[in-house]
Every structure is written in structure tokens, then in C-alpha cells.
Amino acid sequence: MRAVVARGKNQPVTVETIVVPDPGPGEAVVKIQACGVCHTDYHYRQGGISDDFPFLLGHEAAGVVEAVGEGVDEVAPGDFVILNWRAVCGQCRACRRGRPWYCFNTHNARRKMTLEDGTELTAALGIGAFADKTLVAAGQCTRVDPSASAAVAGLLGCGVMAGLGAALNTGNVQRGDSVAVIGCGGVGGAAVMGARLAGAARIIAVDIDDRKLEIARRLGATHTVNSRENDPVEAVRELTGGHGADVVVDAVGVPETYRQAFYARDLAGTVVLVGVPTPEMKLELPLLDVFGRGGALKSSWYGDCLPSRDFPMLVDLYLQGRLDLEAFVTETIALDGVEEAFARMNAGDVLRSVVTF
């Protein structure tokens, strides 16, 4: 099979031939139809996730199940599925308490895909979907309506779900709430869309790029703030009667934007961190402010989603015309265009490039 491989830190990716084994017990082989280009894949390429090179990149994907291993009954060959990187175990303390979206023992396929010479590949987020086919745990496959576009459905596998879930699940945005979203790339844009879907009355998009702010307006923002030109905390307060927003989503994940989110929320408001920080980052806040402002400081991992519950629902909303997932697909590209897509992503030129097969 053809696949995009990162062989070493900071090295350009290459399209290579890989070997995909037959599925073992509890596993499935999926023929990929589309896979989005996500910042996480670039972080793997840069060695920012781990040093377990070579990596098989790609994880934001949809396709058709081709074969399943022994004991698999949740999906069958021919099923159209979205892949996810949190296959819940059903047995850990979170799952047994009825909170499987917090599962502490998520799992991946046990068998390894390899290069032609037998070198084992590390699949990005346990998926590795910049490939004609990939091997995953069957629990990583969520069956959805096959009439959905694969290029659109696959985006729910990571970034778009993370943003939607940050607003809907973690932030628990309610009808009439005020919401601010700091950072309006793919994840932040999805948080804007999630706030709109929840019925927020005021949605304030904050970014340093006017192009992204214009996209955020199309996704549902009622107001925009360019934080290069204006203090975002003061701007959010001014737009919310001097109080601050009920929910503030930090989709950037650096200390500066987290502090902005912290002080841009109303008393007893909620901060949701969905942007991913790097290991060396430190945050300092006056403990009295943490105590005195009340509310909740939350982190949103994968939008606190449960794929078996959320993916089919969101695909249905898309098919009903109530969720414009098409807006996130800036371009479709071939498998050999991933390296160039990374450059466009880092320049802020796209919400999502999507590899189609």
C-alpha cells in the first residue's frame, strides 16, 4: 500500500510502500477514502510527540471496512466508518462509572504495519491513515450514514470534533450564553460552530488573522476581535456588558491565550482549554484570582466526545443541512501533496487540506 511516512525529525515526509497485515482478533482493515491534514501530524513529523520514528502519518479519516478479525461484531466489511483515536475499553473505572468519554485504557491495533524491509511503523494516534489502507482496533471504527462525503465525515475524527465538543460537551454552552473563542483555525472555528448549534446568543471570535475572523463569521460568530490591534480581554468584556463571557474556549494553548481566556470570562464562568500546549510551557496565575472568580477551568480532550454517540449524530445534522461541515474543507489534494499542505497549514492559508483517494 502507498502511505505517507515521516522517517526522521524535521525531515520532509515521503510516499512509500508499506505492508498492512491481515486483521487480528478485535481488529479491522479500513480502505481509506479521505484523510484531513492536521497539526498533530505535523507535530509527529517535527518530533514533538515522540521519537518513535518512522511514523505513519494521518488520522482524521473516513473509509470503508474491508476485513475484520476474530470477535469483531461492531462493524462488518462494507461499513462506511469514521476512524477515532480513542477506542474505549468498557472496563476501566471511567467506563464503569458511565463516563466512557474519559476512558483511561483506550486501545489500538496490536499488529504493526511495516515498511517493505520489515521496519515497524508507529501509526499517528494509533491510526496512520495517509495510506490506501490502514489497520486499527475495531473500536476505532464508528459506522455512520454512507451518504455523507468522506472528505467531510473524516474531519469529525479529530479537529472538528475537538472544537465542536469543546463547546457542546466540555463547555456545556447553553441557549442564550455568551461565548468567546480564542484562536479560529480548524478547531476554534468548530468551537464557534458548536456554540452556534447550542444556541449561544453572542459568539465572539478572537484571532490575529483577519482571514480567519472572516471565516469565523461565516461559521456563526456574531462579533470578531483582532487581538493584534485590540486587547482581547477588554474587547470581550465590552461586548458582554462589562462582565466577560459565560464560556471562553482557548483553541491556541499557550500561556498568553490561557490568561486571556481566564480574565475574559464572567465571574463563575467556564474556561475550556482545547489547544494543545507543549511540554515546556508554564502558567502562572494569582491563586486568589483562581479562588475569587469561581467557575470552572476545564481541559477538553477530543472534545470529551464519545464517537459511537457523537459521530452519527453530527453526520445526521450535516446531512440535514444544519451543520455546515463543508466549510472546513479548503482544498482536496493527492497523497503526495501532504508536505506542501503542511506549509499552507502553518501559513494559515487553509482550515483543512484533505487527502482524497
Rank of each mutant, 00 (worst) to 15 (best):
residue 94 A to V: 04
residue 120 E to I: 10
residue 91 Q to M: 01
residue 112 K to I: 01
residue 87 A to I: 11
residue 121 L to I: 07
residue 105 N to C: 03
residue 91 Q to K: 08
residue 133 K to G: 11
residue 148 A to G: 04
residue 109 A to C: 07
residue 152 V to A: 08
residue 124 A to S: 07
residue 102 Y to H: 10
residue 104 F to N: 05
residue 90 G to I: 11
residue 128 G to H: 05
residue 97 R to D: 15
residue 151 A to T: 12
residue 110 R to D: 13
residue 98 G to M: 03
residue 100 P to G: 11
residue 150 A to S: 07
residue 135 L to S: 06
residue 121 L to C: 00
residue 134 T to K: 02
residue 125 L to T: 02
residue 98 G to S: 11
residue 110 R to Q: 09
residue 139 G to Y: 08
residue 114 T to A: 13
residue 131 A to F: 13
residue 123 A to E: 15
residue 94 A to I: 01
residue 147 S to D: 10
residue 112 K to L: 00
residue 110 R to C: 01
residue 124 A to F: 01
residue 90 G to K: 06
residue 130 F to G: 13
residue 93 R to Y: 08
residue 148 A to K: 04
residue 112 K to W: 12
residue 139 G to P: 14
residue 113 M to T: 11
residue 151 A to P: 00
residue 87 A to G: 09
residue 147 S to N: 13
residue 123 A to W: 07
residue 130 F to C: 09
residue 148 A to D: 00
residue 95 C to W: 03
residue 128 G to L: 03
residue 128 G to W: 05
residue 119 T to S: 04
residue 116 E to W: 00
residue 116 E to D: 09
residue 125 L to R: 14
residue 143 R to N: 08
residue 126 G to W: 03
residue 133 K to S: 07
residue 125 L to C: 06
residue 144 V to F: 03
residue 118 G to R: 08
residue 96 R to L: 10
residue 122 T to K: 05
residue 153 A to W: 03
residue 114 T to W: 13
residue 109 A to P: 00
residue 135 L to P: 09
residue 126 G to M: 09
residue 98 G to C: 06
residue 100 P to I: 02
residue 130 F to H: 04
residue 125 L to M: 14
residue 100 P to D: 11
residue 115 L to C: 06
residue 126 G to F: 15
residue 99 R to F: 12
